[in-house]
Every structure is written in C-alpha cells, then in structure tokens.
Design a protein around this nucleic acid. Structure first.
Lengths: 340, 340
DNA sequence: GAATATAATGCAAACGATTGTTTACCGGCA
DNA sequence: TGCCGGTAAACAATCGTTTGCATTATATTC
C-alpha cells in the first residue's frame, strides 16, 4: 500500500550519479551541469520525491518549529493571538507546536519539557497565572532556546517580551468614566500578585490623581477570576458606603459576572452603575449586557509581534551574535466604546 | 552562554567506553554491567544530558507528532475539540502540530504539505467547508500517513472518521418542538452541499413523518452561514405564508443572527417564534437571547475519540498489519434544554 | 601536444542515536 | 590443555541529507 518514500540515494542510484550531485542538483547549485540538473529534477518529480525533513532537521540542528504555550485556547484573546502567531510563522516556513497549560504550572512545565525534547527552535508563551517557580525558564535559557513572553509575563530580568501597556489603558478607561461625571469609581482587580493587576492599579491611581481626586484604596477589590470571586467583589463595591457609580473590571469575563450579579440586584447596568473593562470578548453584539467600553489589547497584533521578535532572535542566534540585550515591545492599548 | 548540548558521544569519550555502551546503559539494557550503568547515568545527570529527539525521530522514522487542522481555532467547538485531542495525545507522549485552515481550501492544502514535510505521524482534520478537491488526501494516503476526519468529513470512501449523528440530533430537536405543540417548523440549514446539511434535513423529515405531518420543502431554507445569509433565511421563514412558530437552525451562530434579526422585527424570541439549534456557543448564560434548546455535539469527546483512533491506527501501522478496514465512530448527540 | 584554467562530479565525514553482530575475557569442567 | 558458556563491552552499519574538499573530465591557450 504505502510504498517507501524515495530518497536522494534512490535517485542517485537510478541515474548512476553520486548522492551529492543529486542533492546539489535539487538545490540548483551552480556547479552542477544543466543537463544533470534537469535529469535529476525530472526523476525526482516522477518518483514524487520529497526530502525527508526529519533528516534535514537533524542535520541542520533546526526544526523550523516554534512552540506556543497558552493557558486556554478557547478564550478569544488567545485564539486571536495564536492566529497572529501562525500567520507570521507560516510566512517564514515555521510551524506551530501547540500546548495548552490550562493555567496549571505543572502542565506548563511538562509541556516545556516536551517541547525541549522536540527541539523546537524557540518558544512563545503566556505563562499560567499560577506559575511562581521560574526554574524551567532558566533551563530553557541554558539550552539556548529563545523564549518570547507575551501577555502574562514572569517577574524575571533579561527576558524578551511583548506586552500591552495596561497602565495607559487603565488611565484611559478611568478617565473615560471621570469625564462622564463619575467620581466614585470602583476597580475589580485580578489577583494581587499578577503584574497585570499591578498595572491596572497604577493606571487607576494615575487617572485619579490627574483629576485631583483622592485615591481611596477601599474602592479597589480583588477577584480570583472565578465567577464566585467576581460576584463577591462586585457585591462589596455595590454595598460600599460611598455610592459607587462606575466600575472598572479586570477583564470582560469578570465584567460579565459582575454585571450579571448587579442585574440580579436590580441595578440598572450602565445606568445606575457603569462598567468599563478589557476586551477579551467575542460576540459583544449578542450579549445581554456589555460594558460601556473596553480596552482593546490587540491580541492578534501581540501574537504577530511576538513571533516576529522570536524569528529575529533565531536569526541572530544563527549568525552567532552574542548580543545580550533583551527585546521588549510594549503595545499601546486604547479604549473602544461600544454602542449601547 | 548556551553551551552545546552534550551527546551520547561526549559521555562515551569521557568515560572511555563506546557509544553503544552508553546508549544501552541509558536504556537499562541487560547486557551492560551494573557498574558501567551507574557510571554512565551519573555522568549523564551531571552533564544534564538529554537525548536529541531530532536524531531519534530521524533514526526511528517517527516524530511523535500529530497534525491537527481545523477551520477556526476561535470557535468554541474547535477549541474544545483540540483540548480533547491534546489531552489524549499528551498522555501517549505525542505532541500537536497545529494548522488553521480558515475554511480556505488552499490554505488547507498548504498546511497538509507542510505537515507532510514535517513527517507528522498522522493527521486529524475537520475539513474546510470549501474543500471540494480531495487530491491532497489521496496523496496523504499514498505517503502512508493515517488520517482521521472528524466533524466536517469529505465525501470519500474508505476513510476513518469520528462524527456526530446529526440525524438523531435533529430528530430530537424537531420532536422537542413538535411535542411543544408546534406544527409549522422551519429549518434554516447550511449550504446544500454539506453532508452536515443533508443530515439535518434527513432528521427533520424523519421527525415530521414520525408525527404524521406532511413534509413541506418550502419550510427549509439555506444560509451560507454569513450573517447576511442567515438574516435572509430567517426573513424568508418569518414571511412564509404559513405562520412559522418554531425554527431549527444549522448552528448557534446562525441562530444568533436569526434571533437578532427577528428581535429587530418585533418578534418575541422563544414566544412568537421558538428557536432550537446546535450548540457551539460559549457563555450562553450571558447572551441576550439564546435558543430554547441545543443539540450537544460533544466536541471534546469527538476530539478524544479521533485521537484514540489515530493512535490505534499508528499502532497498527507499526505492527505492520495491513488491515484495510476503515474505522468509524458515530457519537450520539442529544438535546440540551436551556433555562430561559 | 602540453600546460592550464574551468566546469562538473565524486568522496567521505558529519549530524546523534539505535541495534545486530562480534569480540574479549573469565571461570568451570572434562 | 582445550572447549564451552556466559557476561560485558566494542564494532560497525544505518537512518537521509548537506557540504568541504578532492578529483576528474572538458575546454582554452600558447
């Protein structure tokens, strides 16, 4: 049924020439005569010869594969990012080896091991929310496998990354509310440890002080990003002694849960209390309630940039430049207002 | 910085023994003395030796990689499927090489070529809606790369596939509406060519005849699955001379667009006209309107089954069994009613 | 026709590991 | 002493391709 794939050797034997000649002929090497070239190419086509990539990978110590590790594929943010990654990768003949960490540190570690075994040329990763030990990243560095972080970035020095400027995004989001006359604005933030949470808090504070308003820490509450956590958080804000008229949420999923809870409490969404968030959401137009505005994080662009960065690093590595600088790209986010 | 990875050769040289001894020692081969074994293993650990998978892949003519080609990663149906695929694959030490066809036949073809080059061991694919030429699949077969189709399956003989029984699902969906007293039920189907559309139509007819109702072909309209197409389709049904009180839609995305249009026409969703669909949707609970019920297609399970099937085929291939039977798994779908 | 330049090809090592076949050495036994 | 069996290790081929270097034809020139 499945005859063995023909090899360069096979072609050489049939044409009664040497293996190296065949190889060179197929690569249009200048030192091969025209007649031989065409003879080789014709036979190759006839036999449906295809180079054995596995052999080439091995020979070249390169697999043209990049590993991509994401917490969840099913979130639009990540699936958009991976689209961006794939698009850029494909253009440069790279393929994508996929891993889903499900926000589980062990799974993440295991995936990285597997990818290392597979000798991926490089890795793009948004780390799991629960990754606190960075040992495996150090090991990657030791193995000389370039890593580009994006979105969720570890607290390490000398790393390459692409990220979205959440500070300015949050400033915009908060300012938007302030301009609309809100004065008591709550922030449902993510877990305190996350860098992303810190940035949001910073942005919130900046916006407040820009408008010469006192910063009230009790207006910032944390959600563990579960439904229950978000409900608790919004409850706290709704019951706050000062009348909260607007809320910035860590992301759209939090916003949905918060709005759902508020709605159940007879709060008129975006009237009694306005919501502003970060956009991860598909299908906004079909939703029962959506935030008034969201900070766009451009996941597709982030994916593209991360991939371009990685390809550049690979290029540099190939040219054996021992440049120790770390690459950083910070993408600006901007507020998108939704039609209500 | 990145010292070259140590090889088996390196170990051999340092210990002044032969390469093969090292290899066998690391594999706990019985013919290697205990002392040598421990010496080898210790040095291996010390040098942080890791076998070069690229070399092994090449040597064993196997990559432990399966290619997965899907139309869109961002649809929940597919991202769930890929979760199932990944979970099973990981357990058997396989990794997933990803390709997104975006429902584009050329892209699909190109991805397959790349995967063939990468010498994936097998492929799992849900074909693009616009794939009409199956030449590339035949070529895969010739190369001896097993393929498991799922979800969207080509009209070919002797293929392996996992699919969901859409006929019975549609029978259930339609019967559900009939039991609720509806008599004039519309069906917004997908493109006529699709196998999936044919199954839905068949189910619809079966349900009708079971209830001794005449089959009225004018109640079946097609959508090209774009927003505009679905709006046109529902418009036709809403303006049908018989008063359509319920509609079965090809999938949830169609349902959303149809319901949105109907809503804009002052039709009370799931009161004036009831909707039943096929579930591809995340976040049903947050939606403005959702179908009364959906046929669950178990994408995660389909992904798992497809991967198990592929692994079995690979096993068989390895054992060189030339069994020509084709594997088919048909998963039963069932109706899920939503709380309104 | 010999020397020389040039074009065309072949040789062989290398990439890192696996694995079938030999070899070396030892003790035991007739 | 010589043969056998067994254990432990070495040898060598192999997987398919690339590539530096050597070698052989062919053409050019005097």
């Amino acid at each position: 049924m499945s005859a063995k794939q023909p090899t360069i050797k096979e072609i050489a034997k049939r044409l009664n020439i040497s293996i190296s000649t065949v190889s060179r002929a197929l690569h249009d090497h200048s030192s091969i005569g025209l007649r031989t070239k065409t003879r080789v190419k014709e036979l190759a086509k006839e036999l449906k010869y295809e180079p054995n990539q596995a052999a080439i990978f091995f020979q070249q110590r390169k697999t043209f594969t990049i590993g991509v590790i994401l917490p969840f594929l099913s979130e639009l943010f990540f699936s958009s990012a991976i689209s961006g990654i794939e698009d850029v990768a494909v253009k440069s003949q790279y393929t994508v080896l996929l891993g889903q960490s499900r926000d589980d540190a062990n799974r993440e570690k295991h995936i990285i091991e597997t990818m290392k075994k597979h000798r991926v040329d490089g890795i793009i990763i948004s780390i799991s929310k629960h990754t606190t030990n960075y040992e495996h990243f150090n090991r990657l560095r030791q193995s000389g496998i370039p890593v580009v972080f994006f979105d969720c970035i570890p607290n390490m020095t000398d790393i390459h990354y692409v990220a979205c400027n959440m500070v300015s995004g949050t400033v915009q989001a908060t300012s938007f509310l302030l301009k609309n006359g809100h004065r008591v604005i709550g922030l449902i933030n993510g877990p305190e440890k996350l860098y992303a949470s810190k940035q949001r808090q910073e942005g919130y504070q900046i916006a407040m002080s820009k408008h010469r308003l006192k910063y009230d820490p009790s207006l910032i509450v944390n959600s563990d990003l579960t439904k229950e956590g978000s409900r608790k958080a919004v409850k706290e804000l709704l019951e706050h002694k000062r009348k909260v008229t607007a809320i910035v949420t860590f992301n759209d999923y939090v916003a949905l849960d918060a709005m759902q809870y508020a709605d159940a409490q007879q709060v008129a969404i975006n009237k009694d209390v306005c919501f502003v968030s970060y956009s991860n959401l598909p299908m906004v137009e079909y939703l029962k309630y959506s935030p008034m505005a969201s900070v766009e994080q451009n996941p597709y662009l982030q994916g593209q940039k991360a991939t371009e960065m990685l390809l550049e690093l690979l290029q540099k590595k190939e040219e054996d430049q021992t440049d120790n600088s770390s690459y950083k790209i910070i993408i600006d986010s901007h507020l998108v207002e939704y039609k209500q």
